[in-house]
Computed example of a mutant assay.
Amino acid sequence: MMPPPPPPAVSMVTAAGWFMGWRLQRSGAKVNQSHDRTASSSSSSAELRFVCIILLLFILLLLLCLRPSHAMDTLWQYQFRIILLGDSTVGKSSLLKRFTDGIYSDVADPTVGVDFYARSLDIESGVKIKLQLWDTAGQERFRSITTSYYRNSVGGLLVFDLTNRKTFDHVKEWHKEVSEHILPHHMVYILIGHKSDLQKDRKVSRDEAEQLAAELGIRYIETSAKCNSNVDRAFELLTRDIYELMKMGEIVTRDGWDGVKSGLTAKVLYPGDEEEELTTASAEKGCHC
């Protein structure tokens, strides 16, 4: 930008002074513009940071609102520790993953030692029971590890494979081993005939399984993790049986025993006026694979 012409009738010195003044005025204007831009940029950055913080807080609040069940898991009245028993490959891990995560996979790695799962059930109005579920390895070499979990369990699922006769024949051995380890106390069992979807490959009849359950004095139910048949029902039946025995005073919490624990809002239990009749066999839902 060219400077305006100097006023008429001025000396060279005056003209030079005037020119220097004009340059200083221009420099000052540029400095002011630079300061304005810097201030504007700083203000925009601060506003952007504030918006980001508000957006992050909103997302966190939304996530908490979408997952209320996890926040409420601490408000259980009782906690039952349940153990799954049976030979390797009968499908204990598949049952647990279907029950806790709602998923099934045809490929499953064998359990090494013991695996842990958890889920809560609403047994009746105002009564939430948290289940600690322990998946034990069926191989003989892990037996010394799994036996340590017997004493601290209140319930057990005796699982066999309907397509494998040997796994059914071993059920009595599992029942005897666990029962001897937990004396003088006892465990509540349910007998599970698993893989009911493989009807063509079946090696154990329902009558045989129901007869064994009657001999052991426990329930029997057939399940399929693949078809999601009777999986929830099996765990619900066992949980309800334990709860009913607690109401009758046959199972109580004990110091140093993790089989049953009371929560912060435990309910006072009284024997019911009419006790629910427990049958050893339950109707199996159809498999809709």
Results as ranks from 00 to 15, higher is better:
residue 116 F to K: 14
residue 118 A to T: 15
residue 119 R to I: 06
residue 122 D to P: 06
residue 124 E to N: 03
residue 130 K to L: 03
residue 136 T to D: 02
residue 139 Q to I: 00
residue 142 F to Y: 15
residue 142 F to H: 11
residue 143 R to P: 09
residue 145 I to F: 10
residue 145 I to S: 10
residue 146 T to A: 13
residue 147 T to G: 08
residue 147 T to Q: 13
residue 148 S to I: 14
residue 149 Y to F: 15
residue 150 Y to L: 11
residue 154 V to R: 06
residue 156 G to S: 13
residue 156 G to T: 07
residue 156 G to A: 15
residue 157 L to T: 03
residue 162 L to P: 00
residue 163 T to K: 08
residue 167 T to N: 05
residue 173 E to L: 11
residue 174 W to V: 07
residue 175 H to G: 11
residue 175 H to S: 12
residue 176 K to P: 04
residue 176 K to F: 11
residue 177 E to C: 12
residue 177 E to V: 13
residue 177 E to N: 13
residue 181 H to V: 14
residue 182 I to N: 11
residue 187 M to E: 05
residue 188 V to E: 09
residue 190 I to R: 00
residue 191 L to G: 03
residue 193 G to H: 07
residue 194 H to V: 02
residue 195 K to E: 00
residue 197 D to I: 01
residue 198 L to E: 07
residue 198 L to H: 04
residue 199 Q to G: 06
residue 199 Q to S: 13
residue 200 K to W: 09
residue 200 K to Q: 13
residue 201 D to N: 12
residue 203 K to W: 05
residue 205 S to D: 08
residue 206 R to C: 10
residue 215 E to N: 12
residue 216 L to K: 09
residue 216 L to E: 08
residue 217 G to F: 08
residue 219 R to A: 11
residue 220 Y to F: 11
residue 221 I to D: 01
residue 221 I to P: 03
residue 223 T to I: 01
residue 229 S to N: 01
residue 230 N to K: 02
residue 231 V to C: 03
residue 233 R to F: 02
residue 235 F to Y: 08
